[in-house]
Amino acid sequence: MHELSITKSMLRIIAREMKSNGVKRLKKVHIKVGELTAVEPEALRFCFEESIRSTPMEGALLEIDDVPLTGRCKACGTEFRIEAFTNICPDCGGNEIERIAGTELDIISIEAV
């Protein structure tokens, strides 16, 4: 259950940003979770909601963008959704595929007052 460790890391970043921006109440957190991360979004949401209970962050919404695994063919440059981990370009059949999205675990922004 490393979603709790990940939540703690996220809350540390949020607390730092709230302090440096002089805001007191957290309203919303926007994050991106790639398909190829070992992170279960619903487990993360559960940990987040439990961790902020009875804190100035209580009630804040967690908006999670699920990022699909996306590749780019090194031969022809086509960008495509990698389905079922099949690393074959749908356009030219090339098999040298660079993964350009789907591994992120990023905090994008927060909204606070």
């Binding site: 990940i6 890391s9 996220m10 540390r12 970043i13 940003e17 709230m18 921006n21 805001v23 309203k27 994050i31 992120e104 675990l105 990023d106 905090i107 994008i108 922004s109 927060i110 909204e111 606070a112 007052v113």
Partner: peptide, 15 residues
């Protein structure tokens, strides 16, 4: 309401 852009890896500290 402030929107604060962060754009940081959540595990940046571990990194």
């Amino acid at each position: 309401m402030h929107e604060i852009l962060i754009e940081e890896k959540i595990l940046a500290k571990n990194g």
